[in-house]
Computed example of a mutant assay.
Amino acid sequence: MVIITACSGQPPKKPDHPAPTPRGTLDLKQYIAEFTSGMGPRSGYRAPTGPQQRAVADGVGLFLDGRRAQAGQRLADVGFRIRTLTDQVTGRRYAELADAADTGTATRGWGRVYVDLTAPSRWSVQVPHPVADAHSEDLGVAILRGTPGGVLVLAGAHRAAGQGLAADVAHRRDTVFHAVCDALLKRRLPGVQVHGFADDSVPGYDAVTSTGAGNRGRATGRAVADALDDSGIDACRAWARDCPLEGRTNMQGRAAAAAGVPFLHIEFSRDIRGSSKRISRAADAARTATAAWSTTRQ
């Protein structure tokens, strides 16, 4: 290690927007799979305090606003750091905002955020139940890869971890996941949240498409549902008929409805999530929404 000190007696001036610490080239799907492989239903989650939630959300918001030095400082207050990586599949560079100690007994389960650095941030894909909804994290990566300008919000613990369902982030507001999604809403970024269900939970359908508690995402929801049908994935449309798992009580969906920002809640069967080919088809259908969002400001 080389340490450089200023000879003038004045501290060296920090750049206004220093680049995040670099990482190598890797397969983003495999990299995230390695992270989620350690998640279990009985460990790996510590409920954050309100100030801790706000610190991570503030850091994410500052990063999206281009204030990267301030973002790094704010995140460091709660043990988070910023790194960059290049996905070898797409060639795109992503910033990873994550807990600096995310393995072993130090794991707090607060999750990670991946920001596409190759285009302005325009939309998000949210994965609240990795592992618990098997391979939903793979689907999240596939959607992120599909359209430039995406932000992936990945929960950091199994939904059954912690006490009293404290880590079931889709149904709670007192989590880092929700605070980060709220920061995205403040910047008017629409989002698609992916979930999973057992094959026999929704007979006759492979997916359930919904706009959650609101209806601002109705047009893009219809387009996604049509694209799913066209790809051989039969979608139940919650705005047109009674469907199970409509996500009306989803907390991120409620917040999006209150903010007037489009939100899609999509459930996929285990059969879809268990096939790389069908995950790719589902992600292609979701691109119907993300591609439209990438060219508009809400």
Rank of each mutant, 00 (worst) to 15 (best):
E137I: 07
V169F: 03
L185F: 11
L62Q: 11
Q52W: 02
D200F: 11
P51D: 15
G79Y: 04
F80R: 05
V224E: 01
P22I: 13
S37P: 11
D133R: 03
V151R: 01
A19G: 12
D16Q: 08
L85F: 12
G214W: 05
S121P: 08
V60F: 06
V78G: 04
H135V: 00
P12G: 13
A258V: 03
G111W: 02
P12D: 11
A170P: 03
A183N: 07
A101D: 14
F263K: 01
D99S: 12
T288Q: 06
A219C: 07
R23F: 11
L228Q: 05
Q52G: 13
L62S: 08
G274R: 14
L245I: 04
A291D: 14
Q30N: 15
R172T: 01
G162N: 09
A71W: 12
A282D: 10
F268G: 02
D242H: 11
P41H: 13
Y205M: 09
P244L: 01
L117W: 12
D27C: 10
L185K: 08
A167G: 05
P48W: 02
Y45M: 01
L154S: 01
L264V: 08
T105Q: 10
A225W: 02
A71P: 06
R278I: 02
D174S: 12
R172K: 05
G191T: 12
Q53P: 14
G40E: 14
L64A: 09
D229R: 00
K277N: 15
T86R: 06
A166F: 04
G111Q: 08
Q52T: 04
A142K: 06
A134H: 14
R237L: 06
G146S: 03
S8C: 09
T249F: 09
L189E: 05
G109H: 03
W110N: 02
A132P: 00
V78K: 02
R254G: 11
S201V: 02
Q53W: 15
A161T: 10
F177T: 02
L26P: 02
G109T: 04
A289Q: 00
T103C: 04
